[in-house]
């Protein structure tokens, strides 16, 4: 057993824990955005005029201190950066973790028993593939937001109308639902994980932590909040 070689060691700034910090912070930024976004979506129920004028008003946040669309561009840049950091950290950790798990061929343990661990939550299993689904969903969703470029159900100058047109199609609702369920699972583990990573867990086990309950609550509120609009349109004909 040789003496440790400190010279060859990577800096703690590049450590798995540091990467997790960046994941946690970027994730929390995106979560904050989601909450505001959800608030905006729920404006749908106030009708076309209020919804459209709310959205137009976003262009002029902090105007004239910021130029037209200035605040939005700041938000876009911050969000894009957060997403890039989040995905970069995730991919880097994923690769490191895979190498660390000690696979023999394609499996780690050859037994068929207890493949799902002792107490792992379903949400924790879905972080990686769920994250990929989310990423695809976000790409599609942003593309859809570009002015009349991808407008299932029909283009319109009124964003309210575009929302209604889109969510009258079953497959749009389905894709959107899949995306939001993925968001929910991602948050159920992710919010707990982010706060734990930032040092805020004071509970001796995963299951006994209050943060776990808060996380799950938050996930339900966000996924549910976002889904009210499409479900109202598709199932109850709202907005038509």
């Amino acid at each position: 057993m040789a003496t440790i070689q400190t010279a060859k060691r990577p800096s703690a700034k590049r450590s798995t824990v540091a990467l997790k910090y960046s994941m946690a912070v970027s994730g929390l930024i995106m979560l904050g955005y989601l909450l505001v976004h959800m608030y905006g979506n729920l404006k749908f129920f106030q009708g076309r005029e209020k919804f459209d004028s709310y959205l137009e008003g976003l262009d002029d946040i902090l105007y004239p201190y910021l130029p037209h669309e200035g605040a939005l561009w700041i938000i876009r840049i911050v969000l894009t950066a957060a997403l890039v950091v989040h995905v970069y950290a995730a991919v880097t950790l994923w690769r490191r973790n895979k190498a660390a798990a000690g696979f023999v061929g394609n499996t780690r343990y050859h037994t068929k028993q207890n493949k799902t661990g002792v107490q792992r939550s379903y949400a924790s299993f879905t972080m990686r593939w769920g994250g990929i689904i989310l990423l695809l969903f976000i790409i599609g969703h942003v593309a859809q937001m570009l002015p009349n470029w991808l407008s299932p159900g029909g283009a319109s100058d009124s964003k309210y109308d575009r929302v209604v047109n889109g969510f009258e199609l079953w497959w749009v609702v389905l894709l959107y639902t899949i995306g939001l369920v993925a968001v929910g699972f991602h948050l159920a583990h992710g919010f707990w994980s982010a706060l734990t990573t930032l040092g805020q867990n004071h509970s001796s086990t995963r299951r006994s932590s209050r943060l776990t309950a808060v996380s799950i609550g938050l996930a339900v509120i966000i996924a549910g909040g976002f889904l009210t609009v499409p479900f109202a349109i598709f199932f109850f004909g709202a907005g038509s």
Partner: peptide, 28 residues
């Protein structure tokens, strides 16, 4: 932490399997 990573251990994803398997119940 530097040594931990240098040895090739993976990162923590806060799922808590470690604590549940720990014979001495080291808290999470």
């Amino acid at each position: 932490i530097e040594q931990h990573d240098h040895e090739g251990f993976g990162g923590c994803t806060n799922i808590g399997e470690c604590t549940s398997s720990c014979p001495k119940g080291i808290p999470l």
